[in-house]
Write a protein that binds this DNA or RNA. Sequence first.
DNA 1: CGCGCTAAGCAAACATCTGTGCTTACGATG
DNA 2: CATCGTAAGCACAGATGTTTGCTTAGCGCG
Lengths: 197, 197
Amino acid sequence: MTSKQPTARIRRSPEEVRAAVHQAVVDLLSDPAGEDLNIPAIAHRAGVNHTSVYRRWGSLDALLADMVTTRLERDSPLNDTGSLRGDLLAWAKASAASIRTAEGRALVRAVILSMPNSPQAQDERAQHFRRRMHSIEQIRLRATARGENPPPLEQILDQLVAPFYLRAIFGIDPPATGYPELLVDRLLGTTGAPGTA
Amino acid sequence: MTSKQPTARIRRSPEEVRAAVHQAVVDLLSDPAGEDLNIPAIAHRAGVNHTSVYRRWGSLDALLADMVTTRLERDSPLNDTGSLRGDLLAWAKASAASIRTAEGRALVRAVILSMPNSPQAQDERAQHFRRRMHSIEQIRLRATARGENPPPLEQILDQLVAPFYLRAIFGIDPPATGYPELLVDRLLGTTGAPGTA
DNA sequence: CGCGCTAAGCAAACATCTGTGCTTACGATG
DNA sequence: CATCGTAAGCACAGATGTTTGCTTAGCGCG
């Protein structure tokens, strides 16, 4: 009764494995009591064999980067509200909601952790960040197409994006009410020639 | 003359060890080709035995936290310039200069890396951040004592501190000229109603 | 229906990291 | 100058992380 069932092994499809591993990363990063993030732990929580993780992703950095890009694309369905202010506000509200959840903060942390000190670190980081900022660029482009005059990207980074990152990293909750409006109004009020169309 | 000199071991003083290890952390974090940060590597580069590191600090997180606080205190001799604007500008200029160097960016990265997902992570992060923000608080206190009316801490975080962190993390160099002034003027110009100044 | 490809699972070797008992250099103290 | 406490260095053991060779489940294709 005991011994021989060596071929009873079940296996999940590559997509299932991928999703389970991604979720395990987020769980470990957000939920539990400070367990440190490593591949054996991730594989265990995902219920897959750790060799599958090693062979598919090769390193923790690569896995984190893959997870982050997948999740960010999946969770960025933001779209045209008809005005620059509306678009920025929608972005800010989504960000505020996101960093109130442990999972949202974990994603931001993962963005940072996934960037190693590689020789081309600077470049990779910049590139990664560009992709992350794609939605902001889209908002600017749409505004320009409408005839609006959006602030330069740098200013949006400084006044809108940066506060959310800072708060996500250090776990500082944004003010309970009106925070997205506050940041957006500050941003648009000081453009110099903000004039919504 | 080869073999027997088992007692030829030389040793360095605790302070030397401490300084060497701290420096090794910064070096590994900033300089080289993406080697990952771990205690054996740090000890090797510092030229000390790894057991010394384990015994003194116990964990990489603790070592990073110790290094960060030591360095930040050492490198924050900022002081009273006589006005709120002057103090903020001095802080901003020092920050801008710092994040232009690999070592400065490494310090910021270390601040973030040294914060584990511990159960009380949220609290610890907030506390750590408070200490990091001590100089900002001082600036506010001095301003109040002078009769000036400084912006609330949250606003200084959003408009002055956050941009520097974002840029340090992602390796985005600040504009070559006038950046500290830009941020400080924006901050002080919008203290009340957005239409002011 | 059989073939072959891809990738998951398994086990075991291999490498690296972490921790411990001990010795001993160095500095302080009297 | 003798003694003592602290902490660095050494060697080795144990735990954990990483990699490899192999088998085999699932799936598309002829």
